[in-house]
Amino acid sequence: MPSTQIHYDPSTPEFQNELWNVYRTMRDEYPVYHDPGSGFYALTRFADVWAAAADHDTFSSRVAEANDLLPQLIYMDPPRQTALRKLVSRVFTARRVAGMEDDIRNYIRSLIDTIAANGTCEFQHDYAAVIPSVVVGGMIGLDEQHIGPVRAWTEAFIDTTDTNKALEAAVGIYTTFAELLDERRHRPRDDMMTDLINAEIDGQRLSDEELLGFCLLLVLGGNDTTASLIGSGTVLLLRHPEQRDLLLNDESHWPTAVEEMLRFESPTQTLPRTATRDVELHGVHIPADSRVMLVWGAANRDEREFSEPDRFDVTRRAQRHAAFGHGIHFCMGSGLARMEARLALTEWFARFPECELAGDPERITSSWARAYDSVPLRLGGC
């Protein structure tokens, strides 16, 4: 029998400070956690999360959240998910992403120039959140006047203290993209919106609902998680100056540093699945139709998979981690996110190697995300 009582509730502000201890207890004593109130189950060990993510026949992505939003890939199963994913995956090819590097670097440098001229910085909103919104907005086809409002709306999906705010944000995004998609039908451009309008599956165009669902997912996945990665990665380096100095002295470690940031502070901490059949795991019976949470953040700190998992080490060469998911829902934009984070961090610390925290960063309360709402910085030498 478990020796420690535990209550897993990531929707509370307190959880953001105690999650690593909660996760450790869950992995050790409640590897299949059953919430007594809501009735959901949660998997926290790396091997269990990894296996469940790859078994879409048993752990379906059709979950309750899908009832409040228009159709989107993360809440679909094959064969429709496979066909729709194929349409978007061609946009995120390694060759195309690599071809964007110089433009992204040039934009980042101009943004840094602006911040340097101002002399102060609230890093999360002035820098970390701006870069992915501009990059993904450009790919989708958003003009400059739309990028700021869409970025603000997507941030509402992280903070889960007000579900009405998230639904209002979804309406704002849907309304904006409905107008833009209608405009593209009359005046096509070389952008993703035009490509999606013209795309066909078995001779059929995507429905209006599918188009809007795609657009919402692209801005959510492209904005929030990458912004969280850049913000969390920066705070980690400032709180571990020996790791920052190692990177400043040897830039070859930046790619592994980004992977370690993803593992250590996974931007997406958990996502839901629905059990399609009865499952027995670690002596616990999970009935069919149960809600099952795959807790990526806990899996990425599992000592059964990682040596000294609570040690932040930018030279770590882990064979795998679960920060981008696994299986058919593995993040299509992972290559772009990695590149954006690497460029954002290398350019920032090249310009401001002596920057430091000007106060305690403030975290967002979220049931699924690990993100900062505010990261005040002193720039140091420019």
Rank of each mutant, 00 (worst) to 15 (best):
P2A: 07
T4W: 04
H7M: 12
D9I: 11
P10C: 05
S11W: 14
Q16L: 04
E18T: 00
E18S: 00
V22S: 11
P31D: 00
G37T: 14
F40V: 12
Y41C: 12
A42C: 03
A47C: 05
D48A: 04
D48W: 06
V49Q: 12
V49D: 13
A51E: 14
A51M: 04
A52F: 03
A53Y: 05
T58V: 15
P71Y: 07
P71V: 05
T82Q: 14
R85C: 03
L87Q: 04
T93F: 04
V97H: 04
V97D: 03
R109A: 13
L111H: 12
E122F: 05
A128C: 09
V134M: 08
V135R: 00
V136H: 10
V136C: 10
I140R: 11
Q145W: 15
H146L: 08
I147L: 03
G148I: 15
P149Y: 13
P149S: 04
V150E: 00
W153H: 15
T154K: 09
T154A: 14
I158N: 02
D159C: 00
D162I: 08
N164W: 09
A166D: 07
L167K: 15
A169R: 05
A170M: 12
V171Q: 12
I173N: 06
L180K: 08
L180W: 03
D182R: 09
T194L: 01
Q204I: 14
R205F: 15
D208Y: 07
L211Y: 10
L218E: 01
G221M: 11
T225N: 09
T225C: 02
L246T: 10
L248V: 04
P255E: 00
M261Q: 14
L262D: 01
R263D: 01
P267A: 03
T268Q: 14
Q269W: 06
Q269T: 08
T270F: 11
P272E: 07
P272Q: 09
R273N: 03
T276C: 08
V279N: 01
E280R: 06
E280F: 03
H282I: 03
G283T: 00
V284G: 11
S290L: 00
M293G: 02
M293I: 06
M293Y: 10
V295T: 05
G297K: 10
A298N: 05
A299W: 08
D302N: 01
R304Y: 07
E305M: 14
F306K: 02
E308C: 12
V314Q: 06
R316G: 09
R317S: 13
H321P: 08
M332T: 15
G333Y: 03
L336Y: 00
M339T: 02
A341P: 13
A341R: 02
R342L: 14
T346G: 10
T346W: 11
P353H: 11
E354G: 12
E356G: 05
L357Q: 04
A369H: 13
Y372I: 07
Y372R: 09
S374D: 15
P376H: 01
P376G: 04
R378I: 13
G381S: 14
